[in-house]
Design a protein around this nucleic acid. Structure first.
Length: 488
RNA sequence: CGGGGAGUAGCGCAGUCCGGUAGCGCAUUCGCUUUGGGAGCGAAGGGUCGCAGGUUCAAAUCCUGUCUCCCCGACCA
């Protein structure tokens, strides 16, 4: 078999790119750091959207859409926010091109009065609207989400994990009280955790970011963090409690029942196409993509086999009945009856694409009223009876979904360490990698020193109280262990 | 943005040092034979060698600039 995908053990980064290419998820586009999301990749995103959108609606949110362009002045209204994003903004300065010698150049006469920023995130443009929408406590809460693209002018990019333009959803809510806003931020964190674990089969750790890792403009940033196959951490989603920072910046006040005026409390939360990168690096193997059934655009592929026209007709009839039965159970199934590829070729292609279950049906099976069933995750094959195939597949998909989660959980557990000394910390990082729980004195200086010396960052501070101890670096008191890792 | 590697047919590459008719494998198209793990034979099509300048009788090859990708750093979802 011609090996088109580099082994993970050989070069993990190359493997990642090979998987994306062979599964036809995305291509590099001519502009640095931006990508074409191909149908196979976009279908995964659509499934993610569908799952998340349902969960957002179930928690009372509505979708809306705010503009791509933001007046430059808006960015400067919240001090922390501008500092965080100023260095990575795409700026629109002109509105026209003109033809010159068969080419085009920017028409200098079209220079804009006020330059426009292509949104890196939408807090500012949204809070500018919220000022008009909110007068009374009766106008609160506002629970809005939008599905959009954003642009961040990143130095170094990587397909899905970090691109200059990416797709995401951003929730932006406004509340009358601090408690309500904090509750919202934590609720959405739990939504993300549930989605990651139940749909993506991707176990995550939740917690709150240290001050230096916090979102620009947030009071607290909650996050879900996962550990990938190469033992590097990935921030998979964030939910921010923004306090009254944006309300103050955009002068959004409301009148309470008692007639008092106060600034509105805010949250924002988002996950992006980065999740697809996390999904790839959580489950996939040296044969290509492995997808959890709940997100797989095609859950079952049927490969028919025949040697002559008569067999072909019979086998296809046999396969059609299976297709009908599976569709009736809401299982997405594809019949691969292409004639110009032989079965082996199709097997490899479907494995690279991560289709969870393959059914093979040929004359032999037809004769015995059987089918061959193959699992993508384990590559196991077995012959099963045709009868009750729908029920069996339904159960198998559920089993695969659970097994993927369990094996990822086991992997993360095996690569999560607890250390007490800085020496152990460094040694663990260099020899094992993974998640490391250690005591920290809560000072930014110590955090910075650790980052400088080991490249490890605090991924999050667990929400629940832990045992007290002494900082592994300074020996000062530490209220609980925090989670460290080298991250993407 | 710093250090390293690369860009030649859809994909993967050779040719570049030492300038002289642009090649190979896979893929594609057509025909026949095949089809239970990436099929065989025969024929055909496909290129301004990333882009822009320069040197030269002559540039994929030498020089300058520039864009993009990959790896390692600094910045970040």
């Amino acid at each position: 078999m011609a090996k088109k995908i580099t082994n993970r053990s050989e070069d993990y980064s190359q493997w990642y790119q090979d998987v994306i290419r062979e599964a036809k998820l995305a291509d590099h586009s001519p502009v640095r750091g931006s990508m074409v999301i191909r149908p196979n990749g976009y279908a995964i995103w659509e499934h993610m959207k569908a799952g998340l959108d349902r969960m957002f609606k179930d928690t009372g949110h509505e979708n809306a859409y705010f503009p791509l362009f933001i007046p430059k002045s808006f960015l400067s209204k919240e001090a922390q926010h501008v500092e965080g994003f100023a260095k990575e903004c795409a700026v629109v300065t002109h509105s026209r091109l003109q033809s010159v010698d068969g080419g085009v150049e920017v028409d200098p006469d079209s220079k804009l009065e006020e330059e426009l920023i292509v949104r890196p995130t939408s807090e500012t443009i949204i809070w500018d609207s919220y000022r008009d929408w909110i007068q009374s406590y009766r106008d609160l809460p506002i629970l809005i989400n939008q599905w959009a693209n954003v642009v961040r002018w990143e130095m170094r990019t990587r397909l899905f994990l970090r691109t200059m333009e990416f797709l995401w959803q951003e929730g932006h809510t406004a509340h009358a009280t601090k408690e309500e806003a904090v509750e919202e931020a934590r609720r959405m964190l739990e939504v993300y955790r549930t989605f990651a674990e139940e749909y993506m089969a991707m176990p995550v750790v939740t917690g709150v970011k240290s001050a230096s890792e916090r979102f620009a403009g947030a009071v607290d940033t909650y996050c879900i963090e996962t550990l990938l196959q190469d033992n590097k951490a990935l921030q998979a989603g964030t939910s921010h409690f923004l306090g009254q920072n944006f309300a103050k910046a955009f002068d959004v006040k409301f009148q309470s029942k008692e007639g008092e005026h106060d600034y509105v409390w805010a949250t924002s939360w988002g996950v992006s196409t980065r999740l697809i990168g996390g999904l790839i690096m959580t489950h996939s193997d040296d044969n290509g993509l492995v997808l959890p059934p709940k997100l797989a655009p095609t859950q079952v592929v049927i490969v028919p086999i025949w040697k002559n026209d008569e067999q072909k007709a019979n086998v296809l009839t046999y396969c059609d009945s299976i297709v009908q039965e599976l569709r009736g159970l809401d299982i997405s199934v594809k019949l691969d009856d292409r004639e110009n590829y032989n079965p082996g070729w199709k097997f490899n292609e479907h494995e690279a694409a991560g289709i969870p279950v393959r059914i093979v049906a040929g004359p032999r099976d037809l004769e015995n009223n059987n089918l061959e069933l193959a699992r993508r995750d384990t590559l196991d094959k077995q012959i099963v009876e045709r009868n009750n195939i729908g029920k069996r597949i339904e159960e198998l998909l559920e089993t695969i979904q659970n097994d993927l989660y369990e094996s990822a959980r086991q992997r993360i557990r095996d690569n999560t360490h607890t250390v007490d000394t800085y020496e152990d910390f460094k040694e663990t990082l260099d020899n094992k990698g993974g998640f490391i729980y250690a005591h920290w004195d809560e000072s930014p200086e110590t955090e910075e020193k650790i980052k400088e010396e080991t490249k490890a960052t605090i991924r999050c501070i667990p929400l629940e109280a832990g045992e007290e101890g002494k900082c592994m670096v300074t020996g000062k008191p530490s209220p609980r262990r925090v989670l460290f890792a080298r991250a993407y």
